[in-house]
Amino acid sequence: MEAEEFRLVREALRAFAADHRCGSAEVGQAERTAAQKALEGLGLGELRGSAQPLASAQECALLAEEYGRQPLTTSFLGTVLLAPEALRLLETADRTAVSEGTPTVALTPDLRFPGRDDDAASVAWDAEGATGALGVGDDGTVRLLGLGTLAPTTDPLRSVRSAHSGGPATELGRQELRDRAGRLPDGLVSAVGRCVVDYQVLVAHARRRTAERLAGRAAGPESSVDKLLMTRAEQRLYETALKVLPEELHREGGAVYGEYLYSRAASVYGGTSQIQRNVIAKRLLRLPSAP
């Protein structure tokens, strides 16, 4: 996405948030429906849904951060970003099952993608306006699950529902990158494992920060730790992706190579990594300044 395009999209999202932000947790269904329709009218559904994504993962992350600052009832992460991405990554897909609806994503209550035997514990996050939920199994198989009743959540505004197969689930396809894992050299298997650990650490920190915000604690110097973790996870992920998929280096307009190039800036934008380390040293560890 060009810089000017991204600026316009972000301004449109900010204007939407200003019009539909909530003043309390007591929001009627009519207000929820109107807000969701207004969000859909922005036309953001194809940001990651097309074969060649319109926006990079980093641009979508910045939009998600912008959206997440606001008290809104609408679904965005699950329906606009994650579910289209899950469908885009399928090697083969039966899209007829989702062509007339709006899926979100199914996760376990502790924010993992559910395995094949996790259906009973799955919940559909960001379920406002959704007609189903996509569950990604351990083997990369994506299945369409139905939506049940409202599920308990720490978010008083956004809808979370139980997700279930209700019988044989509709299998949509399989994510193509999963099949390569069994053929990777040992060195790359370890590299992929480090990426998984980076992701799990980042998720754990995100949960902690979310709990702190819900408890009314203001953001502090701890956010510098989060920025360093995000930078490491992002850069290592795309370095590893190019080792797993070396043909992407030579593919004109290839998404993986483009994301790799953009990830190089992660140690600079939003505060350089060196500045973040200085903040951690001085404000968290209370280390003395160099003489």
Rank of each mutant, 00 (worst) to 15 (best):
A30T: 09
P53S: 10
A38I: 10
C22F: 05
A18C: 05
L44G: 05
A55S: 05
C60Q: 02
A15T: 15
L47T: 07
A38Q: 12
K37D: 14
G49Y: 12
D19Q: 15
A57N: 06
H20I: 04
E31T: 11
D19S: 15
E46V: 04
K37M: 12
Q58M: 09
A61P: 00
K37V: 07
A25N: 09
A55I: 00
E59C: 01
E26K: 03
L54P: 00
V27I: 12
S50I: 07
A15M: 10
E31S: 12
R32E: 12
T33Q: 14
R14D: 14
A15G: 10
Q36D: 13
S24K: 01
R14C: 11
S24G: 05
Q58G: 08
L42K: 03
Q58R: 08
A15I: 10
D19V: 11
Q52P: 00
R14P: 00
R14F: 13
A35V: 07
A51R: 13
A15S: 14
A35E: 03
L39H: 10
G45P: 03
T33D: 15
G43L: 08
E59P: 00
E26Y: 07
E26I: 03
G41V: 06
R14A: 14
A35H: 10
T33W: 13
G43I: 06
K37I: 05
L47K: 00
Q58T: 07
T33R: 14
H20K: 01
T33C: 06
A25V: 04
E46A: 15
A34M: 05
S56L: 09
V27S: 08
A61W: 11
S24V: 03
D19E: 15
Q29L: 13
R14Y: 11
E40I: 00
E31Y: 06
R48N: 06
R48V: 05
L39Y: 08
R32I: 09
K37H: 14
A61T: 02
S56Y: 03
G43R: 01
A34Q: 14
A34P: 02
T33P: 00
A57C: 04
L39Q: 05
E31N: 02
Q29I: 07
E46W: 13
A30N: 02
G41Y: 06
S50E: 15
A17I: 06
S50R: 13
S50G: 13
L42S: 07
G45M: 07
G49R: 11
D19W: 06
G41N: 07
A30E: 15
L47P: 00
R21S: 12
A61I: 00
P53C: 09
Q36R: 05
C60H: 03
A55N: 01
A51P: 04
E26T: 02
C22I: 02
R14E: 15
G49N: 11
A55R: 01
G45C: 05
S56D: 02
F16M: 03
